[in-house]
């Protein structure tokens, strides 16, 4: 393979670690590449030989079903061989370090390692030490680049372009890698971003990243073209951050009443898994403005593009 190339641009990265390191041109290039793979999913035979003979390891140190499945399907459609390793089946639970586990995977000649890990910087840590291609599938509260790419892809699919749009990201921003990757990517492509949520989960420090911060969702909703709702995880050690689910819904939940404030063509997005009736009303999640299932389908195409591009570099 001669290195993926279209429109005068050549992809140079063996790893995808985050959106912050990508240029606007590179982001657009991935999205354009995903277009080609989207079509593969509509065929009767949903498989191309792009990564035939390559081995992909889904290395999920933190549990995930949705992202892991999406990467597995994407790799399978590219004809790669896939193995899945989770924290409970890896030697990390026996005290082996991340570095040693990864070296073992490389010694077993894994070409691509997809890493999900609870520590920020874990993907970069591996990428600096391995020849294999490393794809970040979420590192702590740092980045989740393929989620941002599929979000951008979905917005572009429905609105044609990203530049000039106003996007609200609502919920637990402080602990969210999805939020950070979306912020970096949306700003690079010329969108305006407003973060909405309780002051404890959306601290003012985020304004330094170039976004607006609001704690009044009713003022924001009429002005946005996209509202991206993040999962609220009150059950996981977040008890001191807000008083309870009931109050969260009252102040920030996308209820039917609030949805009336939205522009008619405003897209409703959610990275999943959804808490129906918490961050979003159940009917709205299934409603005409919701593109939540498009996000899932587009995730496959975007991940195929990422694996194809980075896997192609690692092979050379």
């Amino acid at each position: 393979m001669n290195g993926p190339q279209t429109g005068g641009m050549r992809w140079q990265r063996k790893d995808l670690l985050g959106m912050r390191e990508l240029s606007a041109e590179e982001i657009t290039f991935v999205l354009d590449t995903a277009n080609a793979f989207k079509e593969v999913g509509t065929r009767d035979v949903k498989k191309v030989p792009a990564l035939r003979g390559k081995t992909l390891v889904n290395f999920f140190v933190e549990p995930s079903t949705r992202t892991r499945t999406s990467f597995e399907l994407a790799a399978t459609r590219l004809s790669a061989d896939v193995i899945n390793i989770s924290a409970s089946t890896s030697s990390l639970t026996k005290g082996e370090t991340l570095k040693d586990t990864a070296k073992i995977l490389e010694a077993n000649q894994a070409d691509i390692i997809v890493l999900r890990h609870s520590s920020a910087g874990a993907a970069q840590f591996l990428a600096e030490r391995l020849r294999s291609s490393v794809i970040n599938a979420g590192d702590g509260a740092h980045e989740h680049p393929t989620q941002a790419l599929l979000d951008l892809y979905t917005i572009r699919q429905h609105r044609g372009a990203i530049a000039g749009l106003h996007v609200a990201i609502v919920g637990d921003i402080l602990f969210s890698r999805v939020a950070r990757s979306n912020i970096f990517a949306l700003l690079k492509l010329g969108a305006r971003v407003t973060l909405v949520g309780p002051s404890t989960l959306v601290p003012r420090a985020f304004e330094q990243l170039g976004v607006a911060v609001s704690h009044r969702i009713d003022e924001v909703l009429p002005t946005v073209d996209v509202v991206n709702l993040l999962r609220i995880q009150h059950e996981r050690q977040r008890k001191e951050y807000f008083p309870g689910i009931g109050e969260y819904i009252r102040l920030f939940g996308l209820t039917k009443a609030r949805a009336k404030l939205l522009k008619p063509d405003c897209l409703i997005m959610h990275p999943g898994p959804i808490n129906r009736g918490v961050e979003i009303d159940s009917d709205l999640a299934d409603g005409v403005q919701s593109v939540i299932l498009d996000q899932v389908t587009n995730g496959l195409a975007v991940r195929m593009a990422v694996l194809y591009l980075c896997g192609g570099i690692a092979a050379r």
Partner: peptide, 11 residues
């Protein structure tokens, strides 16, 4: 340090 870089990096 809690500040710009902790916010940016999610640490």
């Amino acid at each position: 340090h809690e500040g710009y870089w902790s916010t940016l990096l999610g640490l």
